[in-house]
Structure formats: C-alpha cells, structure tokens
C-alpha cells in the first residue's frame, strides 16, 4: 500500500496544481500562484488545499474550487478546500511559466504593480505603463479600456502591428 501511496500522493498533488483557470485555460492555479498550502494525508485520505482568491468578485473562483474538489475526489481522496484572504493575492505571485503561457495565448502578462500608486496626487490621462504587444513585441501600445472581458484584464492596441489585445492587469 505505502509504495503505491507515494506515487499516488505526488499524483494527486500534481492534479490539484494543474487545475486550469476556467477563463484563461492556459493558466493552472499553480501558475497563478493561488495555492498556499497543499497537504496529502495518506492515513486519512484527506487532501487539504488552501487557496487565495484573486479578485473579490471573480466568478472563476467558485469554478476553481469545484475543479479542485473534483480533481481530488476522482483520485479517491477526500477534499478539504479552504480559502485564505491574507496576504492578498498579487500578480507578483504568477510564475514565469504562467507569464510565458499568457503571452503565447495573446494576453500581455502583468508587469510591475502600479494601480492607484501614481506619484502625482491626481493621475491624469490613460495609463502610461509600458506594455509589450504579445504578438509583435513592440512596446508602442495604447490603452483602449481599463476593463476587459474579465475584472483582471484591460484592453489595449498595438500601434505597430495594429493588433488589439488584452493585458493582465498588475495588482
């Protein structure tokens, strides 16, 4: 039992980390940096997972939670999924692999955090952050809208290749 158990233990842990984001399926929850704790107890058959939610109202979080529970249950374990709010999630926790996957998917990965931290008391005009076009790599891009198809993304356009694209906002 225990020899098999070791493989199974690693396997269920990997299955949890590889749960995909329902909105951006090229990203796993591990890429997003959502997994705080992951503990597989062979004796009780319980897998404890602690995840940090992204945006307060992100509908993907409930789907992610269910997917984690299914990934665990389908491998014969019992799931105990907990949520941890603090410290708050930041895009700084996104892995290098995740950032590259985003770029290949056509979404500019998050840069340095800037939201609400402008040096002037009143930031004037649209964001002047440098964001590279995921298609041609040019940094000559402009913001079209501060909110994209989901809370975590903004809409931009490349001034070189003219391709519109989404940016994962740094928070």
């Amino acid at each position: 039992m225990s020899a098999v158990a070791t493989t199974t233990q690693a396997e269920v842990a990997r299955a949890v980390r590889e749960v995909a984001d329902p909105e951006i399926p090229v990203l796993t929850i591990d890429d997003l940096g959502l997994v705080r704790e992951l503990d597989v107890d062979e004796d009780t058959g319980v897998v404890q997972v602690t995840i940090t939610p992204t945006y307060s109202g992100c509908p993907a979080m409930e789907v992610i939670r269910r997917s984690v529970e299914e990934a665990i249950a389908s491998r014969g374990y019992r799931a105990a999924v907990a949520t941890r709010l603090s410290p708050a999630w930041t895009t700084d926790w996104m892995s290098a692999r995740g950032r590259e996957a985003l770029r290949r998917f056509g979404i500019a990965p998050p840069g340095e955090r800037a939201a609400g931290q402008a040096s002037r008391p009143v930031p004037v005009g649209l964001s002047r952050r440098q964001v590279a076009c995921p298609t041609c790599g040019s940094t000559a891009t402009e913001e079209l809208s501060r909110f994209g198809s989901t809370a975590c993304k903004a809409l931009r356009r490349c001034l070189e290749c003219r391709e519109p694209f989404e940016e994962f906002k740094p928070i």
């Binding site: 603090s86 708050a88 939201a115 931290q117 009143v122 809370a151």
Partner: peptide, 27 residues
Amino acid sequence: DEVVAGVAGKAVKEVAYHRDHATQWVL
C-alpha cells in the same frame, strides 16, 4: 477581526482602481 482585515486587504487594490476610473472620467 482577521476576516474583515483580509477582505479589506484585497478590496483596497480594487477600490483604488475604481477611484482611478472615476477620476479619468471626471477629468
């Protein structure tokens, strides 16, 4: 209260962005 503190910690980032959005439009 750690739950209230935790919700607030997430929410400050979001609300800073909302404030910024309103700022852009008022300007």
